[in-house]
């Protein structure tokens, strides 16, 4: 019921947004500022530091787009959105793009009239369980009590998984990740399930992380990515290809350390086209020729952003896994810059 009301409101939103679409790219340039919708706080993805500056993996996308369009990664107004307000904020034009760990699904793309610009993190739902229970597979979780956030896709995925495997469980509904952590540590539930990145971040905060395991089963696909309004393709292209530039740069070996050197011109024509020393890719996007250089100077290529915010040397400690380049067995595959 909640959903149908929400979708109804969004339909209205979509109609209004359709009338509003008059070139987001021009609006951003005229405003000299990118309004970027972010989460109100998710470990590794978006969080304000003690000085109130936003940091994280999703924030890096905002910064790269701002740098590509305006030449300065700091020209971003971060608009914190909740799970309930994010889509209306985007549809009504309050924000230009949403970079808020949002799963790319059919209905969001088609029915809610949004345009996903790509995937910046391939996530999936997993399970965390104390080691002492001796469970090694999610299929052994018969009659387990499971802490689960209500009203999310994780709840539906869980029901599907248990039904498909013909096992029963008892849900313990919780509202936030912090609450789940407390309940789990107090043994109010045997298992905690949410996105694997969230599980890793939560486990890292435990007194005894070694005593808890994340089970190998990933029961859902959660491709997270930035999204823009449907129907403004110029702006969608800018966000999509900025993201592709970050991914492509890693494949091509462009890092923040050697960016200046490569920008001077190289033997590789694709690098030259990407960095604007050859061809006119920037002009086609309606941006400066050095748009990709600016985007890369904001925080480096995809691999550097990953390592800095959620990589194995950070407290979140995520392995690249699915988020490795296609050449390394992952899913990241930037189309050619030609």
């Amino acid at each position: 019921m909640n959903n149908s009301v929400f979708f109804g409101a969004l339909t209205v939103a979509g109609l209004a947004a359709g009338a509003a679409a008059a070139g987001t790219l021009d609006d951003v340039k005229a405003r000299d500022q990118l309004n970027c919708g972010v989460s109100t706080g998710l470990v590794g993805f978006s969080a304000p530091n003690a000085n109130g500056e936003w940091e994280g993996f999703d924030i890096a996308v905002c910064r790269a787009v701002a740098a590509a369009v305006l030449g300065d990664p700091n020209k971003v107004e971060y608009v914190p959105t909740t799970g309930k307000t994010r889509f209306t904020a985007l549809a009504s034009g309050e924000i230009d793009m949403l970079a808020r760990n949002t799963t790319w699904t059919f209905s969001r793309d088609v029915d809610l009239k949004f345009e996903f610009a790509g995937v910046n993190y391939y996530d999936g739902q997993g399970f965390m369980i104390p080691k002492e229970l001796g469970v090694s597979s999610a299929k052994e979780l018969d009659f387990a009590t499971v802490c689960i956030q209500t009203g999310t896709t994780t709840e539906l995925n869980l029901a599907d998984f248990f039904r498909a495997n013909n096992i029963t469980y008892e849900p313990v509904p919780i509202e936030t990740n912090a609450e789940a952590r407390q309940q789990y540590l107090a043994n109010a539930c045997d298992v905690y399930t949410t996105d694997a990145s969230g599980l890793a971040a939560t486990r890292a905060t435990f007194d005894d992380p070694g005593n808890h395991v994340i089970l190998p089963e990933i029961i859902s696909k959660e491709p997270l990515g930035p999204l823009v309004r449907h129907g403004d393709n110029e702006w969608g292209d800018v966000v999509r290809w900025t993201l592709n530039a970050l991914v492509g740069a890693e494949e091509l070996g462009i890092t923040s350390a050697n960016l200046a050197e490569k920008a001077a011109g190289t033997e590789n024509p694709e690098i030259n086209r990407l960095l604007g020393t050859e061809g006119n890719l920037g002009e086609m996007l309606g941006l400066d020729a050095d748009w990709a250089q600016n985007a890369l100077s904001a925080g480096g290529n995809y691999g550097e952003i990953f390592a800095k915010n959620i990589g194995e040397d950070t407290p979140v400690g995520l392995a690249r896994g699915l988020n490795a380049q296609w050449t390394d067995g992952g899913l990241l595959y930037a189309p050619p810059f030609r």
Partner: peptide, 26 residues
């Protein structure tokens, strides 16, 4: 007002916990 994404003190706790240094403090 935290439900509409404004940072009142309670919503700020969520944002502070999103900092990997302080995650888990309640």
């Amino acid at each position: 007002v935290s439900v509409i994404g404004l940072f009142d003190p309670l919503n700020l706790t969520n944002a502070i916990r999103a900092d990997a240094d302080w995650n888990g403090l309640v």
